[in-house]
Simulated assay, not measured.
Amino acid sequence: MKLDRIDRHILDVLQSDGRIANADLAETVGLSPSACLRRMRALEEAGVIDKYVALLNQRKIGRRMDVFVEISLIGQSNEVLEGFERAVARSAEIMECFLMAGDADYMLRVTAADPADFERIHREELARLPGVARMKSLFAIRPIVRKTAFHLGDRHS
């Protein structure tokens, strides 16, 4: 789907306020409410808008630590990769997982309340992941930038 200026403007507004009323969104982007709703539905149907969520404040729910875990697997066969990826997808503790190029095969992001909670996660979740040859944990001191909105270029010209 090719995004025009109005589509990008709609997406920009929705990324900062996903609960905005359609009438308010339409006014902001300069469309009638019905035209705005048609565009939103088209963006949803095309998969540009993946889903609507509430972003929680990690610290306010007691998840004060971010831990990045580098994973190296025992091999690169489809069976090993797919088994690991299925296990990661089932874990409620793993917030993000990326297939990597370089020294590690995967990079995970885990959140924990404190070091004891991370130890529990390590023991109950990470150590049980299949196909793992090596694991290295990196503890973040504090986040500097954490974005959820994608820059979509010159949206409003």
Rank of each mutant, 00 (worst) to 15 (best):
Arg128Met: 15
Ala133Lys: 11
Leu25Pro: 13
Ile144Leu: 11
Asp66Trp: 05
Leu25Tyr: 05
Leu126Glu: 11
Val53Ala: 08
Ala92Cys: 03
Ile144Pro: 05
Asp66Ile: 08
Arg90Tyr: 03
Ala46Trp: 06
Ala23Tyr: 08
Gly18Met: 04
Asp12Pro: 02
Ala127Ser: 15
Leu55His: 14
Arg86Gln: 14
Ile144Met: 12
Val29Asp: 01
Ser32Val: 02
Asp4Thr: 05
Gly75Ala: 10
Pro143Asn: 14
Ile49Ala: 02
Met65Gly: 08
Val67Lys: 08
Asp4Ile: 05
Asn22Arg: 11
Gln15Asp: 12
His122Pro: 02
Gly102Thr: 14
Leu73Thr: 14
Arg90Ala: 14
Glu93Leu: 00
Gly62Met: 09
Leu152Asp: 05
Val53Ser: 07
Asn78Asp: 10
Asn78Gly: 12
Gly47Ile: 11
Ala35Ile: 03
Gly102Gln: 03
Ile121Cys: 03
Asp117Trp: 00
Ile121Val: 14
Gly153Leu: 10
Ile121Met: 03
Asn78Gln: 01
Ser32Met: 03
Leu138Trp: 12
Asp12Phe: 02
Leu56Arg: 06
Thr148Pro: 04
Ala116Arg: 15
Asn57Gly: 06
Val110Phe: 09
Ser137Trp: 05
Leu138Phe: 06
Arg123Asp: 07
His9Glu: 09
Asn57Arg: 14
Glu85Arg: 10
Arg64Trp: 08
Leu55Ala: 13
Met65His: 11
Ala21Gly: 12
Val67Gln: 09
Val88Phe: 09
Ile94His: 01
Gln58Thr: 10
Val88Ser: 01
Ala112Tyr: 05
Ile71Gly: 06
Arg109Asn: 09
Arg90Pro: 00
Asp154Gln: 15
Glu82Arg: 15
Leu81Lys: 06
Leu31Arg: 13
Thr28Lys: 13
Glu82Leu: 07
Val80Tyr: 05
Ala26Thr: 01
Glu85Lys: 09
Ala113Tyr: 06
Ile74Ala: 09
Ser34Glu: 01
Val48Ala: 03
His122Gly: 14
Glu119Asn: 10
Asp17Thr: 02
Arg128Ser: 06
Cys36His: 01
Val29Arg: 02
Arg142Gly: 00
Leu11Ile: 04
Gln58Asp: 11
Gly131Phe: 09
Ala149Trp: 05
Phe68Lys: 00
Ala89Gly: 04
Ala35Thr: 07
Leu81Ile: 09
Leu11Thr: 14
Ser16Val: 12
Ala46Pro: 05
Asp114Trp: 14
Gly18Arg: 00
Met40Glu: 12
Glu44Lys: 04
Ala42Met: 13
Ala89Asn: 05
Ala87Gln: 08
Asp12Thr: 11
Asp7Ala: 01
Asp50Trp: 03
Met107Ala: 10
Ile94Asp: 00
Ala46Glu: 07
Glu70Asn: 10
Ala46Arg: 13
Pro115Thr: 02
Lys60Gln: 07
Val132Ala: 05
Cys97Asn: 13
Asp154His: 09
Asn57Glu: 06
Ala23Gly: 03
Ser157Tyr: 10
Ala113His: 11
Asp114Met: 13
Gly30His: 08
Gly47Met: 12
Val110Ala: 06
Gly83Phe: 03
Glu70Asp: 00
Glu93His: 01
Arg59Thr: 15
Val53Pro: 00
